[in-house]
Structure formats: C-alpha cells, structure tokens
C-alpha cells in the first residue's frame, strides 16, 4: 500500500495498514511533528490534512487514507531545493504573534487553521472560534491563536493582492 504524505510517496507494508495514522507517521516514518495527546479524537494535537480536510490521525487507520493526499506540519510550508523553508502564512503568523508556548498542540492548531483559511480566507472572529474550538491548548494560548489566525488571513490577502 502507498501513502502520499507531503507530496511524497511512501510504501507501507501490510502490517502497517491497520495501525492508526498517527503511529505510522511518528513511529514508522519518523514524522514526529504530528502529536499524540489523547488517542480519543478530543484534543486535536494529532490533526493532519487528508485531502485538505482536518482529520484526527489518532482515529484514522492508515488503510483508509491510502489514495488520499496527507499533509502534516512538516509539509505545511515549502522546503526549497537548497533546504531553505518557506513558511506557510499560518506558520508565519504564529511566529510573528509569538503564539506557541510549549508548542505541543501547535501542529494541530496550525493544520486546523490552514484548513479553516482554505475554506474561508477572510474569517470573522466567530468563524475563527468555531473553526479552532476543538483543538485544546493547555498552555492557554487561545487569545494569541485567535490573533494569529486573523494575521494569517491578512498575510494571505496581501500575498494574493501582490499577485
């Protein structure tokens, strides 16, 4: 079976297919940016994009996402040939607003925010809250996440008006 993760193809042996995606990513493929927090679909730390939709990888058997595009935090930005990373607007905004504290929830936050902005590039505050409400942050960065998502929307708008 094959998985397409961050525009790259990985071959997965049969015994991996029944595993939850979070462990295949982390333990099998070494993509540890996707985090485990609860294993029950509640905290959102394990969120990845599956065909652009935010998906809890702790409840997603690898076999069910075989023909889909998976994006993890490691693939949210773009890595150029020279190895230089171009940050996704969401990453840029989270950095600018100095949002992460411990950072553990942040992959899930940024992935969720990227999907939200993809759907709605100019979200109102209520839209941000509705879109981000199901991802926990124990360090209590909610105030800044709101700012960061709003800022990311601005960056996206600036970028598209610049061409």
């Amino acid at each position: 079976m094959q998985l397409t993760i961050n525009r790259q193809t990985y071959s997965i042996t049969e015994d991996q297919e029944i595993r939850m995606l979070v462990w295949v990513l982390r333990d099998q493929l070494g993509l540890t940016g996707t985090k485990y927090g609860c294993g029950a679909g509640i905290c959102g730390s394990c969120t990845v994009l599956v065909d652009g939709k935010p998906t809890r990888s702790c409840l997603t058997p690898a076999a069910t996402v075989a023909d889909k595009e998976i994006t993890t935090i490691e693939g949210l930005g773009i890595i150029q040939d020279g190895g230089e990373e171009i940050l996704h607007p969401v990453q840029q905004a989270f950095l600018e607003t100095q949002t992460p504290q411990c950072g553990y929830c942040m992959s899930g936050q940024m992935i969720t925010a990227a999907a939200l902005l993809d759907d709605n590039p100019a979200p109102a505050e209520e839209d941000i809250i509705a879109g981000m409400n199901d991802v926990y942050c124990r360090c209590g960065t909610y105030v800044r996440i709101k700012e960061a998502v709003a800022r990311a929307a601005e960056i996206i708008a600036e970028e598209s008006s610049n061409g």
Partner: peptide, 9 residues
C-alpha cells in the same frame, strides 16, 4: 525556541 516549534521539528 519557536521556529523549530512552528516547523514541527
């Protein structure tokens, strides 16, 4: 420590 944190690294 934030750059590596937002990159998932």
């Amino acid at each position: 420590d934030l750059r590596e944190k937002i990159l998932g690294k």
